[in-house]
Design a protein around this nucleic acid. Sequence first.
DNA 1: CTCCCTTGCGCC
DNA 2: AAAGGGCGCAAGGGAG
Length: 638
Amino acid sequence: MTWTWDDAKVVAHDFETSGTLPEYALQPWRKGVGDFWATSMSVIRHNGAKLEPHGSRLFPQAEHMRTFLEQAIAEDWTVVGWNIVFDISVLCAYGLADLCHQVKWLDGMLLWRHLEVEPEYEFQGAAHKKKSYRLKPGGVERWLPMMAGYNEDVDFHATDEESLAKLQLYNDKDSVCTWIIAKQIWHSLTPQQQACALIEAQSLSMIAETNYLGLPIDGIACSELAARLARTADEKLAILAPHGVTETIIRSPLKLAALLFDDWGLPVLKENTSKKTGKVSRSTDKEVLHELALQDGRCRDLRAYRECLNNRTKFAEGPAVSAAYCGDSRSHPAAIPFGTYSGRLTYGSKQGKAGTKSERPTGFALHQEKRDKEFRRVVTAPPGYTLMEFDASGQEFRWMAIASGDETMLELCLPGEDPHSFMGARVTMQEYHELTNKVQEGDPLAKDARQLGKVANLSLQYRTSARKLRVVARVQYDIPMELPEAQRIHRTYANTYRGVPVYWGRQIALTRRMGYVETLAGRRVQVVGNWDGEWGWSMGSTAINYRIQGTGADQKYLAMAVIKPYLTRIGAKFAWDLHDGVYLWVPDAKVQQAAVDIKFLLDNLPYRQAWGITPPIPLPWDCKAASTWGDLKEWHYT
DNA sequence: CTCCCTTGCGCC
DNA sequence: AAAGGGCGCAAGGGAG
């Protein structure tokens, strides 16, 4: 990276916004029908001596914004803001997305996260207070205490001249603070952290545009799904009602426990103890219901009934309700870059205070959407576009292979190998290549063996216990595993990938010494605290996990940055993210070519140039395409 | 009614 | 003693 902070070329930018209802101020997609607008725009430049407004104004129009963006591009400015994804989505609402993709952006809030993000530990009910990265109160008090307090007495929905003048002044002060704070933080970052922040910054305009555009929701698919789930729920209830089950009971863990353990007389298999109140409750979670179902078939129906009700609200009604609320038959889950401490994106689907009247259903739980076709079909591509997904094949397995240096893992990442069959063969004591052959022939027993290997590979990478493996196998995969077998698989894993437990120990020792963990790209998280205290285990897990998961996040930002110019050229758009997968809307006529070109770009990401390392194994991406999320099919390259 | 806590659970 | 990690959302329930 050759970018350096140049006072003359960094400008700060910020909007204040409003709407026909106060909450519409945060919903730029309502601009089209006149329910949202920018009340003031701030652009702050350094003139060599001091920071001053340059293009700040009340009620800015698209032409004013265009002038600003064109100058930013022509003069190679870097535009810095605080949570600037929002401000970019405002610009998108004014029809300026194409210019936004050409501007260099930077975000002070994200720089702060790079400087000192920390995990939030929770242990038996007690939790850290979540660190805030707000500009104020927060950043200003921390970095610019002499400026603190300017935010008193501001009316964001002002209409009279005096209040509007105040608002503009406030808007400019925000920008000034952002500029000064961002500069300080920038210079506190290591060169590697700076490089990561710059790569990530290149994705901000894509994230902003998709937040503005939203996801097209198929209302009919939603109602069909809701109806199907309602039917199944009714069927289950019909079976269970004679035994005293009602919807109120199934929705209440307390009431359900009374039914199961008092009325039906079933044994209590698991208890929850609140460390805050010390209260003990009898668990009714799906592990418990799975185990109880082995002695009382009604518990299988209970589990199915509860699942139906939950899924209907969350996945059938949720997308439809938000699309109706948003008014454009699109749902607007808000993508939040660096939303997790490990760097991955998170999504928010509500605005306003949760659980209160101010709560607004702007999106749905995109990251939790069930994998079944009939659920994922509710999300479609806009007319004229095809949905394409590119996902990093075996992402965490591959980064673990690289981070640990385990030779077996590394070999299994070479072309033609199948790690799950390999582990399945070890666990079932077969020969690896015999098993892969049988798997390819479709032999069901061989497939089961591979499945077992997959469970082991996916579950045991991060210090999962044999007990937990047993539960995962039984509840999630319906494999009737007992503890001795789980222990044997657990040992087999450690003997197969000997480098992995060594990596665990090495990471913990290194992190204890340094006080932080790094991804392979050099992005950091602070890990400080008492390693022998109640959070010690979690701190160790951060040391192990962050390097893998965080590197995956870096890889995704790098992927987005690399494909961005290509997407712009063919008129494709970033749609959403699922951690190891990037979802795109590609014009129908470009799909064929994009499948080839984008895969080539992704399979050849410039890791060395970007991060200074050369991965010792290939890091391939898989491609899928369809007109809805639920119908995605593997792309066949000829 | 709001606020806060707890339980349970979806995905990667 | 034992303990994968990372999230966000729905819902119940108690306090005030």
